[in-house]
Simulated scan of single mutants.
Amino acid sequence: MTSSYRERVDPVPPHPPQDHAPELPAAALSTGAVARRLGVSPTTLRSWERRYAIGPATREDGRHRRWTAQDIARLELMCRLTAQGVPPSEAARAAVGAAPAGGDADPESAAVPETTAAPGGPNALPLGEVRPECRGLARAAVRLDAPAVEQLLEAAVAEHGLVTAWEEIIAPTLHAVGRKWASAGERYVEVEHLLSWHVSCALRRVRPAAEQLRSSPVLLACAPGEQHTLPMEALAAVLGERGLPVRMFGAALPAEALHEAVRRTGPRAAVLWSQSRSTADRPLARSVAAIEWGLRGARGHSALLLAGPGWGTGSPDPRTERLFGLRSGLTVIENALRPTDHAEQATRTGPATGTRA
């Protein structure tokens, strides 16, 4: 689900709104854009400006803050120092003293003081080329700044929608935490746990559509022994948001329970997630795909969709299909839910009558 994305900056009008207003560098950023980039709240930036005089050098009409590359470099250093336990007052003094001088460089490639050669310092996550919101979320997670993580996740979902927020902001950050954890022994486990918890909470706050499609549900489960549930939680949230009925069974569903759940719910589609090859049980997948349900003479079977890297890239077994990514996976699921004859044409029903399995 990861990919490369060109970082973006908020556009600034090429001319000041009034004749007496100072001319701004073309790439100066608003306070909100800087906050998302750094993983702090706009309130925190204003507090730092008020207490430690580490604000933007330029204001539009004297009211709207616009942060230049040099302003952002100071803030980045202050964030790194406070994440290492340096008191904010001392971090501010060090950041002001180490800030680069002059020039109107691009804020997305602002110079970093020589004392911190790597962007984000030694604790930075290996993100690569991603959205600025992704970097901000990563910085907040490394600082264990739970309120900022929560705010950034809510803002990402509200601004970009759940699918884009997951694929371009949340998933890349989760993958970076996993890579950092894998390369640092037992360090950063706390970062992974905090971020995963807040991602899960954000996904569960997504409200399902008031009207639900009257159709067989989509069954979501993790393979036996598989504990990674966040991708399935994201899929459940998106399906619910689109009014599709879901039955979510979470982590490590035993094989017998998976068979029974399919028989009892009669899902048009069942998604089985496997994060690693050790939990990708192909004989189990074949047995689930072969299950028939319903009344004698009108038996049906589910489209079994295998999701997650554990299943590899080989050809799927009969009656199974691979899912790759949330957005493309939604298309496959929606195609599987299309009615097979006129009698099964989907209808919309209000919340009073609910859904029919």
Rank of each mutant, 00 (worst) to 15 (best):
A156P: 08
D10V: 01
G250T: 06
E150K: 12
C222L: 09
R37S: 10
H160P: 00
E114L: 14
A223M: 15
L337T: 03
L195C: 05
E76I: 02
L284P: 13
W197F: 03
A69I: 08
E190M: 06
A91V: 01
R296G: 05
G266H: 09
T82K: 06
A53K: 14
Q227C: 04
L162C: 09
G55W: 05
T82F: 03
R59K: 15
I169A: 13
R143K: 06
S302Q: 05
V86F: 05
P351Y: 12
P172G: 10
G294W: 10
S315M: 07
A165N: 07
L77A: 07
S183Y: 01
D317M: 00
S315F: 06
L125K: 06
H259N: 00
A237I: 08
H160D: 10
V142W: 03
R242V: 00
W273H: 13
V288T: 14
D71V: 13
A98R: 12
G185C: 02
A124N: 06
A148F: 09
V9D: 10
R59F: 07
A223Y: 10
A138K: 02
A101T: 15
P42C: 05
R268L: 12
G314D: 15
A138L: 02
W181D: 00
A307K: 03
T164L: 09
P11I: 00
H259C: 04
T116G: 11
Q275S: 12
G225R: 05
R207W: 02
T58P: 00
H20T: 09
P283C: 07
V177S: 08
A251S: 14
R59A: 07
H259I: 00
V189G: 15
C79R: 12
A261H: 11
H198G: 01
G97D: 14
T173H: 01
E192D: 10
T2I: 12
T331H: 10
G354E: 03
G300I: 03
R179D: 08
G308C: 07
Q345V: 15
T164Q: 13
R205T: 02
L194A: 05
G310R: 08
V163E: 14
P14S: 04
S41R: 12
I54Q: 09
G62H: 04
